[in-house]
Design a protein around this nucleic acid. Structure first.
Lengths: 208, 208
DNA sequence: CAAGAATATGAGCGATCATTCGCATTCTTC
DNA sequence: GAAGAATGCGAATGATCGCTCATATTCTTG
């Protein structure tokens, strides 16, 4: 007889109604992550916050991890959108304006839902194997290395691998800390100054 | 009659036997943190790993948070020990050797039980309010600022607050990432080179 | 060695967790 | 408007959590 009539589709939404349910679940996950932290984000609570039955949650997500992954994906999509096009043109600029634009871009990226970004960066690496350094940072690393290769004659470093590591790490940490930890200690125009300083730090390093 | 004969001392160890119990609990907590991560570190599991009854755990620690705090304290004590005395003499050195020593010192600090350090840095900030930036980083920040003030005439930055933020953030991130994430990608002598690069990055920034 | 203090123990309680499943409701399609 | 598919639901289950407490063992002190 091989009955397979019901149970465990665990698949994706097709009707508008269910798409709304999925959205509500992802949104609720993000809100709870920001307001209560990762460990308080239980599947029961997420469903309740979303105004959705716990059973519905498990129709579309196999578990908490999948919810969080969806939140991450949505966040990264928003960042890519906020940054799109700019990256391409940076590749052809000379070092000084390129670095400055890059730092400004990093700040902008960190300002897309900073609270969520902070939670994702700080509380999640232990969960998904993909942390800031390996996934997101990895992309930036490769990109920056490409830039350095193309502009090799304008800079005074010989180990491009090492230089990429130094620059990407510095820019990432600087913007991350500035936006997520010191946005009060650093006043509004101080943030502008910080972009200058970060650019000067990296430019000076590259140009010897 | 005001009976107070038994129950809830929750106090500290006096006999050698109980001191050993406390040590075993802290050590077990550290091991579990490193090998299984924060959320798998339940009080029951800690007690079991330590070879100690769960009741004994609660005689000396009010909960999981206290255990973790003890681990942090022990770790920081070890770091301070590995770094002691060097900091004092750095204060009187001129910029270039001072920065280089500082970077080397940061690397050494991160090499004290790097796996534990990584767990503490990445998985804990959401728990205790005291994260790397506010507590540990805060100390370094103040210290570095003091150095900059004392050597003001040797450097070309006007906002010492901002400069301290930039330098401490960069050094911390560089050493943290190098030791904890890229220790394989960066070979042994590359680590030496990294210290040079980090020093050059910061020195160049400070001397304009 | 006796008695009381210090220490150790673990079964067990209540809370919360992730997850399932049978059934109710709504949508689509003809 | 009827049938079947898609969607929504939440009580219930079993695992695990933090933590207490009555009791057992070991140490110190006279």
């Amino acid at each position: 007889m091989a009955r397979r009539p019901l149970t465990k589709p665990r698949k994706s939404a097709v009707q508008a109604r269910s798409r709304a349910t999925v959205d509500a679940l992802v949104e609720a996950t993000a809100r709870i992550l920001v307001r209560e932290g990762f460990d308080r984000a239980s599947t029961n609570r997420i469903a309740e916050t979303a105004g959705v039955g716990i059973g519905s949650l498990y129709q579309y997500f196999p578990g908490k991890e999948a919810l969080v992954a969806a939140v991450i994906e949505r966040h990264q999509r928003e960042i890519r959108q906020a940054v799109r096009d700019e990256l391409a043109e940076i590749l052809d600029l000379p070092v000084e304006p390129a670095v400055r634009k890059l730092v400004a871009l990093a700040v902008r990226a960190h300002r897309v839902d900073p609270k969520l970004h902070r939670v994702l960066a700080e509380q999640l690496p232990h969960l998904g194997k993909r942390d800031d350094q390996e996934r997101f940072g990895g992309e930036n690393f490769a990109l920056f290395r490409t830039y350095l290769e193309r502009h090799r004659d304008e800079i005074r470093v010989d180990d491009l691998e090492l230089a990429s590591f130094v620059c990407v790490t510095a820019i990432e940490a600087l913007t991350h800390n500035a936006v997520l930890h010191y946005s009060k200690r650093l006043s509004g125009d101080a943030m502008e100054a910080l972009i200058d300083e970060g650019a000067r730090l990296v430019t000076g390093y590259l140009k010897g």
